[in-house]
Amino acid sequence: MKKKLLALVCIAAMVFSLAACGSKSETPAEAPAPAEEPAEAPAETPDAEPAEAEGTEGATDITIGVSFGQNVHPFFVAMQMGIEAACKDNGIENVNILAADSSLETQVSQIENLVTMGCDVILLNPYDSDGVKNAVDAALEKGVGIFTMDIDCEGSTAYVASNNVKVGELLGQWIVEQLNGEGKIAIIDGISVTSLKDRTDGFMKAIEGSNIEVVAEQQTAVERDDALASAETILQAHPDIDAFVGVNENSGMAILSAVTAAGLDDVLMTCVDATAETMAAIRDGKVDVGVSQDPYQMGYTAVEQAIKWKNGETVEEFVEVPVDYMNKDNIQSLIEREQGYGVEVE
């Protein structure tokens, strides 16, 4: 008996040593993006200033259906406000906004129902890019236009989103510039969600060719508690890094906690998305730079594109919603913009 147990321990030990040797290799294939990730603006009073309307006349007879993967997150709340504002500005009355509460099945039947109701276009934020394929195909067959927002799916008429590769590139360029193309950095990123994966790819591409070395990388950006544990441990192994890169709110804020707790004050930090926490951190000079998306504009643009398409104009397959740096200089105006969406900043 004891022998058996000993054998098991030996096997375990071997597995570990193998693990130790075979580390840092390729990772599992990326899963299709579920609901997007953290970002701006919570619900409450929709007193946002209506963005400039381009008043495409004669578009009022369009019927728009909207299906969100989930709409409790501030990011999607802002997007929904953008859609509502665009409809109001263009005098569209037939708008049906639904949310699938993070359930693929619900979203599929919502798409089917919207088609049956006679929608001309469906603005879709897929909960799962692959999972909605059949319903999307069926809708397209009936001549309904599918405009995806933030997350794409196959066959969509147009895809309206920030370019996440660009988000990563902006972070990378900033790092290269700040470090004069030389130094050691660590990064907490992710591959399980397409947006995070794109940011990571963009970042790595931007620092390629410089003498910047990524000494540690953990793909734990999705959950803040995981990201924090990773960040603490990475700082333990590499207290001498020049910059610690976060690619979303959770990783950025986790890095901030870990760096602060470790008492390091010369590490550059980054984050992405204009949320209450990230904006306060940048305003207070704790995090050096961030890149922000504009979900309100995403929703607004999607409606505009849908109207164009209904009027027989051609629309681009990918409509990019601009992203930009947020830093100490422009943070106050960003905070005001987000407050317009209902975000409370301490």
Partner: peptide
């Protein structure tokens, strides 16, 4: 330990 020596998250 795995994070410290740089083993990939999914491993």
């Amino acid at each position: 330990g795995m994070t410290l020596v740089g083993i990939n998250t999914y491993w």
